[in-house]
Design a protein around this nucleic acid. Sequence first.
DNA 1: CATGAATGAGTGTTCATTCAT
DNA 2: CATGAATGAACACTCATTCAT
Lengths: 209, 209, 209, 209
Amino acid sequence: MKIEMETTPKNRIIQTAIKEFADNYYDTASINSIIKNSNTSKGTFYHYFKDKEDIYLQIIDIAVQEKMIYMEKKLNNILSNKSEILLFNDNFKLLIQAGVEFAMDHPLFSEMGMKMLQEPNSYMLNKIIDKYGHRTELFIDKLVNKAIENNEINPKLSRDFVVKIISFLLSNYIKLTPIEKKMDLKQITDSLDQLNEFFKNGINKVNSK
Amino acid sequence: MKIEMETTPKNRIIQTAIKEFADNYYDTASINSIIKNSNTSKGTFYHYFKDKEDIYLQIIDIAVQEKMIYMEKKLNNILSNKSEILLFNDNFKLLIQAGVEFAMDHPLFSEMGMKMLQEPNSYMLNKIIDKYGHRTELFIDKLVNKAIENNEINPKLSRDFVVKIISFLLSNYIKLTPIEKKMDLKQITDSLDQLNEFFKNGINKVNSK
Amino acid sequence: MKIEMETTPKNRIIQTAIKEFADNYYDTASINSIIKNSNTSKGTFYHYFKDKEDIYLQIIDIAVQEKMIYMEKKLNNILSNKSEILLFNDNFKLLIQAGVEFAMDHPLFSEMGMKMLQEPNSYMLNKIIDKYGHRTELFIDKLVNKAIENNEINPKLSRDFVVKIISFLLSNYIKLTPIEKKMDLKQITDSLDQLNEFFKNGINKVNSK
Amino acid sequence: MKIEMETTPKNRIIQTAIKEFADNYYDTASINSIIKNSNTSKGTFYHYFKDKEDIYLQIIDIAVQEKMIYMEKKLNNILSNKSEILLFNDNFKLLIQAGVEFAMDHPLFSEMGMKMLQEPNSYMLNKIIDKYGHRTELFIDKLVNKAIENNEINPKLSRDFVVKIISFLLSNYIKLTPIEKKMDLKQITDSLDQLNEFFKNGINKVNSK
DNA sequence: CATGAATGAGTGTTCATTCAT
DNA sequence: CATGAATGAACACTCATTCAT
């Protein structure tokens, strides 16, 4: 459900900036372009935002908070499920689902999120990691620990590798299951199921029965 | 084996540019910096290279050709092996190995290769994909087709998905098995084995015996 | 004796502006800074002051009037003293004293006064000179004329030069006898006495007996 | 004797910048204006000068070196004069003369020099003082010490005050003896003589016989 | 009385590129 | 072969000022 946004200059700036930062890394994103494309003036921009860094971090914050909503919805599912059969693997699928749903509703935020983690400007990257890096890592850590306790994990894989591969896939699932507007729900579900199947059982025929 | 490079102006420019493009995406890479750091002049630069695009594409070409050498070495192994037991999965490991060896010998090229595929300048990205996109894809296509024929692949996974996940892992293995100078061969081998194990059998305990 | 100033918005603006114009020449003084540091709004500022020029001239006016009070106190001494022995030279000392006392009570005004006379913005400088230049000059003119009548002046010095050197020293005494908060009255008096001695008798040993 | 300067862009920039820095303090001097008025481009400016600070310090250096030539000419006179009667006071006159001659030949440099010492940008002021502050101070120190040894100085004046008043007058003589193009040599000499007379014997009639 | 949203010209600086020598 | 002088568009950011509320 799209809410018709008031087109105040500030809102226009933010919307345009989201697009700009979805398309560019920090250094190539252009404040001038944002101003031009949002039909405002330099003065207005700097009335609302201290500088480029300020608007960048503000927008990231909006995106992170929005994503949190999607994650927490799924997390509640996970946590409320008390049965023994709640495998770690299903949690993985839920997390990916949260990400996909977020990406479908907020494709620009999703794009931006992918760029963020590859940010070549190291000063900026560190700022982001310092601020938001912990959250997902901590959460995944907990999940993996629990999964190891429950004896769910392929013992040939080290704890570190498992954490790494999950973080990695969670950050990059969208390149494997690219969400496009024309896809219907079935297509998306199929796509996710494939990723989940691969994640659980690998590529070898042997493992499927 | 390091080959002592003649330090002609052109060579110095190329070496410096490789570093620049390993550290920056196209738009943030600075021709001015390249010229300054290579102790040459603007005139000399534009004598050898038509423009920024020209040197970028030339360097990518060098990197691609260099990588091809590593790939073909392994490919010959693959193709010369006539026995039935040559599973597709082992080929995957060989390909990753080729990539790792390439990254160890040419860390800047490797870095550049990773950046290339994330290039935010879409004009540039398309140029690259148009020129080099086919090669690996075609090759992986062939491998997958053969693997399917041989009945090696988990039937729950579609052909498309398998191609995609392989391409993806081949492009990004380094984030999962980061190569550092201080690592000894055993560490690297262990790391690769984990990735291969995950690739083959997934994360579930069930599949390992 | 400090008078507790009502902190109306206008007063806060004026106090902050005095500091700003004490630290900066006209063009580098920033209205934005004044507004920020006085905790008011742009609207309030422009409600009370037409523009930058307006507040600058108003503040100069405040400073000039304040300085006049100090000058007139001393002038009354001068004029009320009817005896013949009141030399012009002592008047010089009184004027300097007036300046020093003013500077001690109003260091920011004093600072601003020094800056004013060096104002590099020539449009502004002319405005100031047109408005206030006459006063001191006229007054010094009178003093010098009287002193010449009284035969007090070294005949090798022209009337013009005497007027000029007096104006000059009156404007710049503070660089020769810098007033600092930690100085006690004796230190200041000593410093002034030296300036007065030099003014009267010059640097040569011959003249002191 | 004016030497017709080659009007290379660099020369035009420097000449225009001298005018700009003679008319403005560091912060109000405008690189844009310099570029506009010298009929060059931004690129050309930054080809020759690293930044605003660079051209400012370079120009100060040119001015200082030029002034040194004038000073040293006079200093040679001072030092070569072996007779006992060479009073300190005459040295003062020589120094002022050097300054006046410099100001006549290089009015913009002279103007700039006056501004320099009042520079409100403290970072810039410190840079200048660190680099050039010592020279004149040291030299005046020596002169005053010698003069005290020779018993030339009014004993009512402290050493510190004498150094200060000399430095001060040397920096500001031009406001007392403003040099204008239309003045002939006699007028200038008269003006200087008056300053020297005042410096030696003060303003009191008593001292002149 | 007081607020702050909105503006656009201005600042210093970096950029890739051209071209005469 | 190689140099560096010259260019102007673009960059992020600050400024004094206007005006509707």
